[in-house]
Design a protein around this nucleic acid. Structure first.
Lengths: 137, 137
DNA sequence: TCCATATCCGATCATCTCACTCAGATAACC
DNA sequence: GGTTATCTGAGTGAGATGATCGGATATGGA
């Protein structure tokens, strides 16, 4: 549900938002700063681009920049781009019945998670990172 | 994080709360009613007992009864008994720093999940199940 | 135009977790 | 003592996860 994909992904997007204002940020630069495996990061960045979060600049001096303003990208977008829609339980009732327990319990949980993640923007994380430079993200 | 352990576990506890008032409920009875693999259920029920949610009655005509009143058992208790404490990300800062991003984002997520799960009691689920007898749980 | 630098894309791989089974030990009621 | 249960731990197959590699494509600069 929340794996390293999400964690690395959030780190990567925050890194681009921080350092990608003047020129594109290469995967290698992200990997170096965030201490993440470069080859693995490479395959996380594809979905982020397809989700319209990052934009790529190919060729020499290329890399990634934000496709949207950092304050318009939520943590939920990053997570769902990388892991698919939040899904706790695949309901036995097929999703049609509002009285099904899986709805009343697990869907409530999914909603709570989505709300919490949607409440945090990349811009906020960048701001926090700026105020505390010891942390890599 | 939330696997079949949690789902089966909640189903099992709700089943015991529903049917375990007069006499203990055997694992086989739970497995039959909830259509769950009996041998697998058997190993979920151990942690639930150790967590003080269920109480076992050994021997012939034995089984499980609630160790606490159903309205004093939350879904969070069941989930953490079976999957351990909710933990999204193991923080690189060791948990000491309140400014760490992992705290501000992933811990917020964990808190939201815990709150949502702690808000639902087994008794509520039993009540819902009674009002909609078509559902197995 | 050539070359270094990057993104892109797919295949592959090791490792781990998950869901589940099995075998046997212990306990209690008839 | 036999039957019915809980208890316990070890084991297993499939699939997900985390990561690597090779090569194709694109681009700016010499």
């Amino acid at each position: 549900m929340i794996s390293t994909k999400s964690r690395y992904g959030v780190q990567a997007v925050v890194d681009v938002a921080r350092h990608g204002l003047q020129h594109p940020v290469s995967i290698r630069a992200i990997a170096d700063r965030q201490r993440l495996p470069e080859a693995y990061l490479e395959q996380l960045v594809g979905p982020l681009r397809k989700a319209g979060i990052l934009r790529s600049v190919r060729g020499n001096q290329g890399g990634y920049v934000m496709a949207k303003a950092a304050d318009r990208v939520t943590a939920l977008e990053v997570v769902t781009a990388l892991e698919g829609p939040l899904k706790i339980a695949s309901c036995s009732c097929g999703g049609r019945d509002p009285d099904c327990l899986e709805h009343s319990l697990w869907r409530r949980l999914e909603t709570a998670m989505a709300t919490a993640l949607a409440d945090v923007t990349i811009a906020e994380l960048v701001h926090q990172a700026r105020s505390e430079p010891a942390y890599r993200i």
